Amino acid sequence: MRLYLQTVPVNADAPRYVQITLEQDLLGGWTLYRESGTQGGRATLKREQYLERDEAIAAFEKSRDAQLKRGFRLMFSQGQEGPYGR
């Protein structure tokens, strides 16, 4: 699953973005990646490991909801049906 969220550009400032990705690893665990930064600028990548799928999906959804609350808008969604990956 992957989501790409972005803020609305204000003035001449580049918009901020967050990309949240959830992938299953080769051993059956799950990895949640959260990349954030300014479009065309520096970015930060954080990685969290989960053993259970349900726990990983809950963390994915919590991260998504937090960014939507902060004013980010969903620009791209891949790998899950429904609005906002639900």
Rank of each mutant, 00 (worst) to 15 (best):
R47W: 00
Y50H: 14
K46Y: 13
G37K: 03
I57Q: 04
K46A: 08
L32W: 02
D54C: 00
R53P: 02
S36E: 15
Y50G: 03
S63P: 00
G41N: 11
G40N: 10
E48C: 09
A58H: 12
A59G: 08
L51S: 12
K62T: 09
R53H: 10
L51K: 09
T44E: 14
T44K: 14
S63F: 03
I57T: 05
K46D: 06
A56G: 01
E61M: 04
D65S: 10
G37T: 09
A66K: 08
Q39S: 14
A59H: 07
R64G: 05
A66C: 05
F60E: 00
R34G: 10
T38R: 12
R64E: 04
L32E: 01
K46M: 06
A59V: 08
E52C: 00
R34H: 14
E48L: 12
I57C: 02
R47T: 14
G41L: 03
E52G: 01
G41C: 05
E61K: 04
Q39C: 13
Y50I: 01
A66M: 02
D65L: 06
Y50F: 15
E55V: 08
D54H: 05
E55Y: 04
L51E: 12
F60C: 06
R53M: 15
L32F: 13
S63V: 11
A58V: 03
I57D: 02
A43T: 11
R47Q: 10
R64C: 03
I57W: 01
T38P: 00
A59P: 06
Q49R: 10
A56L: 07
E48A: 15
K62V: 05
G40T: 11
R34Q: 15
F60D: 01
E61D: 05
G40M: 13
R47G: 02
E61A: 03
A56F: 07
T31E: 03
L32I: 12
R64Q: 08
R53N: 05
I57R: 07
E52P: 00
D65W: 06
Y33Q: 11
K46N: 13
G41H: 10
A43W: 11
K46S: 06
R47S: 11
F60K: 04
T38A: 01
T44P: 05
E52K: 10
E48Y: 12
S63D: 11
R34D: 05
E55W: 02
A59D: 04
E48Q: 15
F60G: 01
R42Q: 08
R53Q: 11
R64N: 07
G41Q: 11
A66V: 06
T38C: 00
T38E: 04
A59E: 01
R64Y: 02
L32M: 11
Y33V: 07
Y50S: 01
E35G: 02
R34P: 01
E35T: 08
I57L: 11
A56P: 03
G41S: 14
A66F: 02
R47P: 00
A56M: 11
R64A: 06
L45I: 13
T44R: 14
